[in-house]
Design a protein around this nucleic acid. Structure first.
Lengths: 337, 337
DNA sequence: TTGTAGGCGTTATCAA
DNA sequence: TTGATAACGCCTACAA
């Protein structure tokens, strides 16, 4: 039986009101009383019951994040970093972070969101890996449930989010590759309904055009943002009649897979083949060779998203509700001859 | 204003009791009534308030996990995989997973645990990266709060856990290295209060002894289980007068850092230097060269730990409360000449 | 400065 | 088979 506020009150011969107010730092409690209360609470190991408080206050002081990944056994560093950011900022704001995983765009995903929203399990949710036509955005919007998103969609209404301008990033990357003398640049893509794919692929096409290169269908390989996917796509591209001399992965994991494919084919990355990724995860610094990438500040974005979300849940105005970041091109050996 | 059970009851001219029981699947509700209730609830978008239910039932249906990492911006694949396992099993059991991070063995860590335990925020917690003398174990034990651990400690009492026999794993690894002709085997270690360090280091010493090799202090470099730490330690070892021909990292991340140090020193891993890690994270398959490692089934352990924990919180007996696993030696190019 | 009392939305006991 | 009612532990308007 855990200690309740009643126990503390009884012990001190005070009312529960006074105990409550003393601990919550109200000013209309005698300082001496407050000290006694605080000490007794400490000694008796009292901490207010979260569920009681939540029920009474009609808020949970908890935010939720549902990782949109298909494989149960995922291990994508992007999510680690994102979650780390969410968690740290949540702690800083004295919020709890509830986490689960659901395969994107399936019944299971809908069930989880509904459980959390209708059961008022969390005060707000953070979305990531947005889809172009994203039912989550519509649903939360219609339910007027607080949410923020990492990424954009084609929704007809506005919502609080941080976007990254992948297109401009990829354009810069292509300019760099062209500078290195590359004319045959391939792209390993992600699922076509993902906003990041549409955005980055647009950059790919625009970048080629800007450099006066022609877009070739055969230089595009579909993949799934994983190392294994990148590996397979890389193999395929390298097996072409006249293979590309540079390959861009839709994300770093994909690029890491491509590195491996190149290694297995005996191709020297850097001199014979340029490889680049997108995200700027830690691993890229330690691959062989170190990987050129477009870095987005995932950790900081996550923290900022939480701050935006708390503004929303507190009915405060979000200072800058639509952020668009430019990723930073980090050039490493994988694209240097 | 979200829908409450009262709204549904009123709508149907039933008592809230009946609605509650109908939705919870009690048998003493007329089937026809139940159908009406279920349909109405669906239409009205009703889902029971979690906080109310929690308060009433005196349980949260939530388990907690506090990542013991110092750097805020961590990204350790071990934790990704562990969390994935916890999350998936929690979902399967209809539990929520609460996650935060706290620097090990500091005031902040104590505060978080106390908040969760005393505030009855979660029904039980999962511990990982155990310390030899672990205050968390003592505290939870004394509070009779349900917990399970991934790893062992020197506690004088029993507690439910899954351990991995790192010592035997490292012994096997050393046997393999010796077979490959290595005589000068170094070890890059972790913080000395970690159980995994004590365990694996013991294996290192025993392994050397079994092979008739002498233990040399200079072949041990302190590190911190990160890539960067491994890199620095690797540099140091490779700069020795007569450097080792094989280096074992306390975990895979460390080993990945060592790979990089070797690369920078122009040393060919495999032929000139053997490198091996511990954990079996996904990255090891994609490094250059692919990394020999001792694989522990992190994902499955996490799932199993959750099952053990639910047994505890339901006051059921845990079938096998003390598990000891033998890690699997996966030999890859990094230790083959 | 302190206390009384009502209610947040459920579930569970007991009676009808 | 259904309903009235009492908690669960806390916060807060209002009264003293």
């Amino acid at each position: 039986m855990p200690t309740t506020i009643r126990d503390v009150a009884k012990q001190l011969n005070l009312s529960i009101t006074t105990v409550s107010r003393a601990l919550d730092g109200y000013s209309d409690v005698a300082e001496e009383t407050r000290q006694r209360v605080i000490q007794a609470a400490e000694e008796m190991g009292y901490a207010p019951s979260r569920s009681a408080r939540q029920l009474r206050r009609q808020r949970t002081d908890t935010i939720g994040y549902i990782m949109p990944t298909s494989q149960p056994r995922f291990a994508d560093p992007f999510f680690s970093e994102f979650i780390a950011g969410l968690g740290d900022e949540a702690s800083a704001q004295n919020l709890d972070l509830l986490i689960t995983r659901a395969p994107p765009d399936q019944e299971a995903e809908r069930v989880v969101y509904q459980r959390w929203v209708q059961g008022r399990r969390v005060d707000g949710v953070v979305l990531s890996r947005m889809r172009q036509d994203d039912w989550r955005v519509r649903y939360l919007h219609e339910s007027s449930f607080p949410f923020v998103a990492f990424g954009r969609t084609n929704a007809s209404f506005e919502f609080t989010h941080i976007g990254v301008d992948g297109a401009s990033g990829i354009r810069r990357l292509i300019a760099h590759l062209v500078e290195q003398g590359h004319q045959h640049i391939a792209f390993v893509s992600a699922a076509s309904d993902l906003s990041l794919q549409i955005d980055r692929f647009k950059g790919y096409q625009e970048g080629l055009a800007e450099a006066g290169l022609i877009f070739e269908e055969r230089f595009v390989a579909e993949s799934n943002l994983t190392r294994d996917g990148g590996y397979l796509a890389g193999k395929k591209l390298l097996a072409l009649q006249s293979p590309p001399t540079a390959i861009i992965g839709a994300n770093d994991l994909t690029a890491i897979g491509i590195l491996r494919a190149a290694r297995e084919s005996g191709i020297s990355v850097g001199s014979d083949l340029a490889v680049a990724g997108f995200d700027g995860i830690d691993d890229t610094e330690h691959t062989a060779p170190p990987l050129t990438t477009l870095k987005q500040p995932v950790y900081d974005c996550a923290r900022r998203l939480v701050r935006m979300l708390t503004a929303l849940t507190n009915n405060e105005a979000v200072e800058e509700p639509h952020v668009l970041l430019i990723p930073e091109l980090i050039i490493r050996d994988s694209t240097l001859r």
